[in-house]
Design a protein around this nucleic acid. Sequence first.
DNA 1: GTTCCGCATGAATCGATAG
DNA 2: ACTATCGATTCATGCGGAA
Lengths: 308, 308
Amino acid sequence: MRDVSKSNDSKKPIVHSVPSLPVDEDSEGRSPLTDLLDKIIQGDCLDVLPLIPSECVDLILTSPPYANKRNKTYGGVNADQYVTWFLPIAAELQRVLKPTGSFILNIKEPAINGERHTFVIELILELRKQGWFWIEEYCWHKKNCYPGKWPNRFRDAWERCLHFTKNKQFAMYQEAVMVPMGDWRHQRLRNLSETDKQRDNSKVGSGFGKNVSNWVERDMAYPTNVLHLATECSNRGHSAAFPVELPKWFIKLFTLSNNVVLDPFIGSGTTAVACQELNRRFIGVELNAEYCSIARKRVGNSTQLTLW
Amino acid sequence: MRDVSKSNDSKKPIVHSVPSLPVDEDSEGRSPLTDLLDKIIQGDCLDVLPLIPSECVDLILTSPPYANKRNKTYGGVNADQYVTWFLPIAAELQRVLKPTGSFILNIKEPAINGERHTFVIELILELRKQGWFWIEEYCWHKKNCYPGKWPNRFRDAWERCLHFTKNKQFAMYQEAVMVPMGDWRHQRLRNLSETDKQRDNSKVGSGFGKNVSNWVERDMAYPTNVLHLATECSNRGHSAAFPVELPKWFIKLFTLSNNVVLDPFIGSGTTAVACQELNRRFIGVELNAEYCSIARKRVGNSTQLTLW
DNA sequence: GTTCCGCATGAATCGATAG
DNA sequence: ACTATCGATTCATGCGGAA
C-alpha cells in the first residue's frame, strides 16, 4: 500500500500556494517545466500539481494509495470517500495532460465486508463526467499474488490498469511493445494452417489462408490488453512496488524519447526508474518523506524539491 | 459473444403467461421443477423464468447477449438500454436462486465509439441496489483471443465473470477446483524427500519429518481469481461459445452432484454439456430456435420444451 | 561462473476477540 | 450493536549463500 499519510487528515490545511517554493513561478503560479523535470517532489498532489504548467505532460501513470483500513500508521484513503478525494486531483491531472496524452490508473478495489467495494467503478463513471474518455481497461495478471485462504473467495491475482484520455485521438506507439512470437505460437500457426487446409477443402473462408501466410513471415506480434507480470517481492521499503516492467510497458506504448511522464503518487520511485531506463523525463510527486528518500536514492538525483 | 436474435425486437409482444405450456402449473403459475430439469427451453427469459419455482436453483451461470453493432443479423441488445433490459430478468433470477446459491455473469463491455461502454459497471451498481451482493469479479484471461488491430487499443483478451449472491454466506466448494502446484514445488519436494531419507537413516529430527510429510501429501494448491483458459475455436454455429472448461470450473466450485444449474441464455448449450459431464441437473433457456436446435443435439435430449 | 536451494515476504481477507 | 485489533491462512518470486 502506498503511503499518503495525512492526505486525508482534515486538520492539515490544504495549501494551494507555497510561498517558499524553491522554483520560479509565472503569473499563473506555475513553475517552469524544466525546474520540475526529473525531480521527486515531496508534497501533497493538490499542492504540487498546480505548479505544473498546463498541457505539458505526455503520460500520467500512477498507482494511487488504495483504500483500506488495514494500516492506520500509513493511513490510506477511506473507501467510501475515495471518489470525493480523487476527483479534484483528477481535474488537475486533466489540466496538465497534453491533448494527445494518456492517463493510466493502476488500481484494484479491496474486498470489504465480504464484498468487492464499488468505489473504483464509481470513479470511472465520475471521471467520464469530468470529461475523461474511458478508452480501455488493461488487466494486470499478477503471477505471484498475496497468499491466503478464505471461505468466500480466492486470492486476488489481477488489478485494473484503467486507460483514460482527453480526446479520442491520442498518441499510441504500438510497435514499441511488440513481443516476440513464442514457440507455442509457431505451433499454433502450424495448427491453424492445417485447419486452413481443411476449410479450403470444404470451401469455407477463402481469405483466411492469405492471413496465415502473412503471420508466418512475422516474428513479432502485438500484445493483448492483458499483462502477465510478477510483482516485485524484494524489499524496497515500499510495501507496494509494482514491477518496473509495468510502467515501462505503458511508457513505451504512450510516449517517445524525452517525453514527460508524471506520477503523482510515485512511492518508491518505480515510475522514475522506468523513465530513466527508457530515456524519458519524469515528474514524481510523493507525500511521504520516507518514500521520497527511497525514490531519490533510486533515481540518484541530487537536486530534489521539498514543498513542506 | 453470444447472440440472441429478436431478444430486443420490440415488435414481439412480451408473453408472460403461456397458455399452451406443455407442463403442469401450480397455483402460482410455476411448473414442477422436475418438468424443467435437463431441458433446453425455447423462449424469452421473461416468459420462461416465471415458470421456475422459487429458490430451487443452486447456480445461475450465463453469458448473456452482448451489446454490439457488429452483427446486425443477430442483433443483440443495445448498449444504452442494456441495464434496463437486464434488471427485470435479474429480479427473476434472484427469486429462483436458493439463498445459498451463486450467480455468475460472464460479460465484457464492447468498445463503442472508441470507448469502453459503461453499461456493465452500471449494471453492477444497479444489481446491488436490487439486493445482490457483488462478491467477486473473476477474470477470464483468454489464451487465444479474437484477432484484429486498431489504432487505439489492443486485442481484448479478458472477460469479466461477475460473482453475485443473495447472501454473504453461500455455498463454495473450493477443494473441487484445486490445481497442481507449480514446478518450484516439485523441486522442493524432491530435495526435501532426500533430506528426509537421510534424516530417517540417521534418526534425527522427528518433528521435521512430520512437516515434510505434510508438505508431501499436499501437491495441490488453491487457484486464484484469474482463469487462464483458451476459447474454443471449433465452430458450433454459435458466434462466441465459451469453452466448456469455464462453466465446468464454476459448476464444480459452487455446486454438488445433482444440484440445479440455470443458464437463461444458454446459446449452443455449453453450460448444459458441462452439467452433464459433471452429473449436475440443468435448466437451459434460449430464445433463438437455431441455437436451441444445436443445444438439444449436443445434450442429446429428446423431450424439450418450446414455449412459442 | 553456474546452478541450486532455503528462506523471507508481499497493494489480502476473514473471523474471532476485545473494547 | 458496532468498531478496532489480531491471528491464521497461503504460494510465487527473488535474493543470498552454498555446492
